[in-house]
Amino acid sequence: MNNKMIHRHDKGAIYIHWFNALCWIFLTLTGLGLISNEHINPVGAWWPDLMRGIFGSAETLINVHIYVGLFWAAVFLIYILVRFRDSLAFLKEVFTLSPARDAVWMVKRNIQLTLGNRAMKKMGMTTEIPPQGFYNAGQKIFAQLTVIAGLILVVTGIIMFISTIILDSPTPAAWSRTIHYLMAGLALAGLLVHIYMAAISRDERPAFKSMFSGAVPEDYARHHHELWYQEVKNKP
Protein backbone atom coordinates (compact mmCIF):
# COMPACT_ATOMS: atom_id res chain seq x y z
CA MET A 1 0.00 0.00 0.00
CA ASN A 2 1.13 3.42 -0.92
CA ASN A 3 0.33 5.92 1.77
CA LYS A 4 1.99 8.82 0.12
CA MET A 5 -0.30 11.84 -0.07
CA ILE A 6 -0.46 14.31 -2.88
CA HIS A 7 -1.48 17.91 -2.37
CA ARG A 8 -4.73 18.56 -4.15
CA HIS A 9 -6.55 21.58 -2.59
CA ASP A 10 -5.18 24.60 -0.80
CA LYS A 11 -6.86 26.17 2.21
CA GLY A 12 -8.65 28.85 0.18
CA ALA A 13 -10.23 26.31 -2.11
CA ILE A 14 -11.34 24.22 0.84
CA TYR A 15 -12.91 27.15 2.65
CA ILE A 16 -14.71 28.43 -0.43
CA HIS A 17 -15.95 24.96 -1.18
CA TRP A 18 -17.53 24.49 2.20
CA PHE A 19 -18.82 28.04 2.28
CA ASN A 20 -20.35 27.40 -1.10
CA ALA A 21 -21.80 24.09 -0.01
CA LEU A 22 -23.42 25.52 3.09
CA CYS A 23 -24.83 28.51 1.26
CA TRP A 24 -26.10 26.38 -1.57
CA ILE A 25 -27.92 23.98 0.74
CA PHE A 26 -29.26 26.78 2.87
CA LEU A 27 -30.46 28.77 -0.11
CA THR A 28 -32.05 25.72 -1.69
CA LEU A 29 -33.93 24.90 1.49
CA THR A 30 -35.06 28.46 2.16
CA GLY A 31 -35.79 29.07 -1.50
CA LEU A 32 -38.01 26.04 -1.61
CA GLY A 33 -39.83 27.51 1.36
CA LEU A 34 -40.58 30.64 -0.64
CA ILE A 35 -42.78 28.75 -3.04
CA SER A 36 -46.19 28.49 -1.51
CA ASN A 37 -48.92 27.83 -3.99
CA GLU A 38 -51.07 24.77 -4.08
CA HIS A 39 -50.69 24.56 -7.85
CA ILE A 40 -46.90 24.59 -7.77
CA ASN A 41 -45.69 23.37 -4.39
CA PRO A 42 -42.84 21.00 -5.34
CA VAL A 43 -42.90 19.07 -2.07
CA GLY A 44 -46.24 20.07 -0.61
CA ALA A 45 -47.41 22.92 1.58
CA TRP A 46 -45.75 21.53 4.71
CA TRP A 47 -42.31 22.67 3.63
CA PRO A 48 -43.05 26.38 3.10
CA ASP A 49 -45.17 26.32 6.25
CA LEU A 50 -42.30 24.76 8.17
CA MET A 51 -39.73 27.20 6.84
CA ARG A 52 -41.93 30.21 7.50
CA GLY A 53 -42.58 28.85 10.95
CA ILE A 54 -38.88 28.45 11.66
CA PHE A 55 -38.04 31.95 10.49
CA GLY A 56 -41.04 33.53 12.13
CA SER A 57 -42.63 34.90 9.01
CA ALA A 58 -42.49 34.73 5.27
CA GLU A 59 -40.95 38.20 5.11
CA THR A 60 -38.08 37.16 7.36
CA LEU A 61 -37.61 34.07 5.28
CA ILE A 62 -37.36 35.99 2.02
CA ASN A 63 -35.10 38.58 3.60
CA VAL A 64 -32.76 35.94 4.96
CA HIS A 65 -32.76 34.20 1.61
CA ILE A 66 -31.98 37.45 -0.18
CA TYR A 67 -29.23 38.59 2.16
CA VAL A 68 -27.57 35.18 2.40
CA GLY A 69 -27.72 34.98 -1.37
CA LEU A 70 -26.20 38.41 -1.74
CA PHE A 71 -23.54 37.60 0.86
CA TRP A 72 -22.71 34.35 -0.94
CA ALA A 73 -22.40 36.17 -4.26
CA ALA A 74 -20.29 38.91 -2.71
CA VAL A 75 -17.89 36.47 -1.05
CA PHE A 76 -17.50 34.62 -4.31
CA LEU A 77 -16.84 37.85 -6.13
CA ILE A 78 -14.13 38.76 -3.65
CA TYR A 79 -12.66 35.28 -3.84
CA ILE A 80 -12.53 35.43 -7.62
CA LEU A 81 -10.95 38.86 -7.57
CA VAL A 82 -8.38 37.90 -4.98
CA ARG A 83 -7.53 34.59 -6.63
CA PHE A 84 -8.12 35.67 -10.14
CA ARG A 85 -5.52 33.43 -11.81
CA ASP A 86 -6.57 30.33 -9.90
CA SER A 87 -10.19 31.03 -10.68
CA LEU A 88 -9.44 31.36 -14.36
CA ALA A 89 -7.49 28.11 -14.25
CA PHE A 90 -10.40 26.44 -12.53
CA LEU A 91 -12.84 27.67 -15.16
CA LYS A 92 -10.49 26.55 -17.90
CA GLU A 93 -10.15 23.15 -16.30
CA VAL A 94 -13.85 22.54 -15.81
CA PHE A 95 -14.88 23.91 -19.17
CA THR A 96 -12.35 21.86 -21.13
CA LEU A 97 -14.06 18.67 -22.15
CA SER A 98 -12.48 15.98 -24.30
CA PRO A 99 -15.53 14.61 -26.10
CA ALA A 100 -14.32 11.05 -26.65
CA ARG A 101 -12.73 10.43 -23.29
CA ASP A 102 -15.25 12.31 -21.19
CA ALA A 103 -18.29 10.86 -22.94
CA VAL A 104 -17.04 7.32 -22.53
CA TRP A 105 -16.24 8.07 -18.90
CA MET A 106 -19.69 9.38 -18.27
CA VAL A 107 -21.42 6.34 -19.76
CA LYS A 108 -19.16 3.71 -18.23
CA ARG A 109 -18.87 5.27 -14.80
CA ASN A 110 -22.60 5.70 -14.51
CA ILE A 111 -23.22 2.07 -15.39
CA GLN A 112 -20.43 0.95 -13.14
CA LEU A 113 -21.78 2.87 -10.18
CA THR A 114 -25.39 1.86 -10.58
CA LEU A 115 -25.31 -1.57 -12.17
CA GLY A 116 -21.75 -2.67 -11.58
CA ASN A 117 -18.88 -4.02 -13.58
CA ARG A 118 -20.59 -7.28 -14.38
CA ALA A 119 -23.45 -5.55 -16.04
CA MET A 120 -20.98 -3.53 -18.03
CA LYS A 121 -19.27 -6.65 -19.20
CA LYS A 122 -22.58 -8.20 -20.13
CA MET A 123 -23.25 -5.17 -22.27
CA GLY A 124 -20.05 -6.00 -24.10
CA MET A 125 -17.98 -3.20 -22.67
CA THR A 126 -14.61 -3.41 -21.07
CA THR A 127 -14.34 -2.22 -17.51
CA GLU A 128 -11.55 0.07 -18.60
CA ILE A 129 -12.43 3.65 -17.59
CA PRO A 130 -10.77 6.42 -19.59
CA PRO A 131 -8.16 8.30 -17.57
CA GLN A 132 -9.23 11.65 -16.10
CA GLY A 133 -7.55 14.96 -15.30
CA PHE A 134 -7.79 17.06 -12.13
CA TYR A 135 -11.56 16.62 -12.35
CA ASN A 136 -13.33 13.72 -13.86
CA ALA A 137 -16.02 14.33 -16.46
CA GLY A 138 -18.79 14.07 -13.91
CA GLN A 139 -17.16 16.59 -11.65
CA LYS A 140 -16.59 18.87 -14.59
CA ILE A 141 -20.17 18.75 -15.76
CA PHE A 142 -21.40 19.39 -12.24
CA ALA A 143 -18.94 22.26 -11.91
CA GLN A 144 -20.12 23.70 -15.19
CA LEU A 145 -23.70 23.42 -14.03
CA THR A 146 -22.99 25.15 -10.76
CA VAL A 147 -20.98 27.93 -12.39
CA ILE A 148 -23.66 28.65 -14.98
CA ALA A 149 -26.59 28.12 -12.61
CA GLY A 150 -24.84 30.18 -9.94
CA LEU A 151 -24.35 33.09 -12.30
CA ILE A 152 -27.93 32.96 -13.51
CA LEU A 153 -29.24 32.57 -9.96
CA VAL A 154 -27.32 35.65 -8.88
CA VAL A 155 -28.50 37.72 -11.83
CA THR A 156 -32.15 36.64 -11.57
CA GLY A 157 -32.01 36.95 -7.81
CA ILE A 158 -30.77 40.50 -8.03
CA ILE A 159 -33.46 41.32 -10.59
CA MET A 160 -36.12 40.04 -8.20
CA PHE A 161 -34.50 41.90 -5.33
CA ILE A 162 -34.51 45.24 -7.13
CA SER A 163 -37.86 44.67 -8.82
CA THR A 164 -39.85 46.49 -6.18
CA ILE A 165 -37.16 49.10 -5.71
CA ILE A 166 -36.42 50.35 -9.19
CA LEU A 167 -38.06 48.26 -11.91
CA ASP A 168 -41.16 49.78 -13.42
CA SER A 169 -42.03 46.69 -15.43
CA PRO A 170 -43.15 43.53 -13.65
CA THR A 171 -42.02 41.23 -16.47
CA PRO A 172 -38.31 40.92 -15.57
CA ALA A 173 -39.19 39.80 -12.06
CA ALA A 174 -41.74 37.31 -13.37
CA TRP A 175 -39.30 35.72 -15.78
CA SER A 176 -36.45 35.90 -13.28
CA ARG A 177 -38.43 33.84 -10.84
CA THR A 178 -39.19 31.20 -13.47
CA ILE A 179 -35.55 31.00 -14.49
CA HIS A 180 -34.31 31.18 -10.89
CA TYR A 181 -36.50 28.23 -10.05
CA LEU A 182 -35.37 26.31 -13.12
CA MET A 183 -31.68 26.85 -12.36
CA ALA A 184 -32.01 26.04 -8.69
CA GLY A 185 -33.93 22.92 -9.63
CA LEU A 186 -31.35 21.70 -12.13
CA ALA A 187 -28.52 22.48 -9.75
CA LEU A 188 -30.32 20.56 -7.05
CA ALA A 189 -30.54 17.56 -9.38
CA GLY A 190 -26.77 17.74 -9.83
CA LEU A 191 -26.18 18.46 -6.19
CA LEU A 192 -27.88 15.24 -5.11
CA VAL A 193 -25.38 13.23 -7.16
CA HIS A 194 -22.49 15.38 -6.02
CA ILE A 195 -23.39 14.92 -2.38
CA TYR A 196 -23.83 11.18 -2.82
CA MET A 197 -20.56 10.77 -4.62
CA ALA A 198 -18.65 12.89 -2.19
CA ALA A 199 -20.12 12.02 1.12
CA ILE A 200 -21.77 8.64 0.76
CA SER A 201 -20.08 6.77 -2.04
CA ARG A 202 -17.18 4.71 -0.75
CA ASP A 203 -15.48 5.24 -4.11
CA GLU A 204 -14.88 8.88 -3.58
CA ARG A 205 -14.20 8.85 0.14
CA PRO A 206 -10.63 10.11 -0.37
CA ALA A 207 -11.88 13.03 -2.36
CA PHE A 208 -14.32 13.87 0.44
CA LYS A 209 -11.48 13.65 2.95
CA SER A 210 -9.32 15.83 0.76
CA MET A 211 -11.91 18.56 1.08
CA PHE A 212 -10.79 18.78 4.70
CA SER A 213 -7.13 17.83 4.52
CA GLY A 214 -6.26 19.18 1.11
CA ALA A 215 -4.45 16.01 0.05
CA VAL A 216 -5.29 12.70 -1.60
CA PRO A 217 -3.46 9.38 -1.51
CA GLU A 218 -1.21 8.81 -4.48
CA ASP A 219 -3.03 5.64 -5.40
CA TYR A 220 -6.31 7.40 -5.48
CA ALA A 221 -4.87 10.13 -7.60
CA ARG A 222 -3.37 7.64 -10.03
CA HIS A 223 -6.57 5.67 -10.42
CA HIS A 224 -9.07 8.43 -10.39
CA HIS A 225 -7.25 11.33 -11.91
CA GLU A 226 -4.51 9.67 -13.86
CA LEU A 227 -3.81 12.52 -16.21
CA TRP A 228 -3.50 14.98 -13.33
CA TYR A 229 -1.35 12.47 -11.43
CA GLN A 230 1.01 12.25 -14.39
CA GLU A 231 1.11 15.99 -14.63
CA VAL A 232 1.99 16.32 -10.94
CA LYS A 233 4.59 13.56 -11.20
CA ASN A 234 6.21 15.07 -14.25
CA LYS A 235 6.43 18.48 -12.71
CA PRO A 236 10.02 19.30 -11.96
Binding site: D49, S57, A58, E59, I62, N63, Y67, I165
Partner: peptide, 18 residues
Protein backbone atom coordinates in the same frame (compact mmCIF):
# COMPACT_ATOMS: atom_id res chain seq x y z
CA UNK B 1 -51.58 30.60 10.18
CA UNK B 2 -51.17 33.68 8.02
CA UNK B 3 -49.88 36.70 9.85
CA UNK B 4 -52.59 39.24 10.15
CA UNK B 5 -50.16 42.12 10.26
CA UNK B 6 -46.66 41.52 9.01
CA UNK B 7 -44.41 42.63 11.84
CA UNK B 8 -41.65 43.85 9.61
CA UNK B 9 -42.13 44.47 5.97
CA UNK B 10 -39.35 43.73 3.57
CA UNK B 11 -39.28 47.32 2.52
CA UNK B 12 -38.73 48.46 6.07
CA UNK B 13 -36.13 45.79 6.55
CA UNK B 14 -34.48 46.85 3.33
CA UNK B 15 -34.62 50.46 4.24
CA UNK B 16 -33.04 50.00 7.62
CA UNK B 17 -30.41 47.62 6.36
CA UNK B 18 -29.58 49.87 3.45
Amino acid sequence: MKDKMPPLSRRKFLKTSL
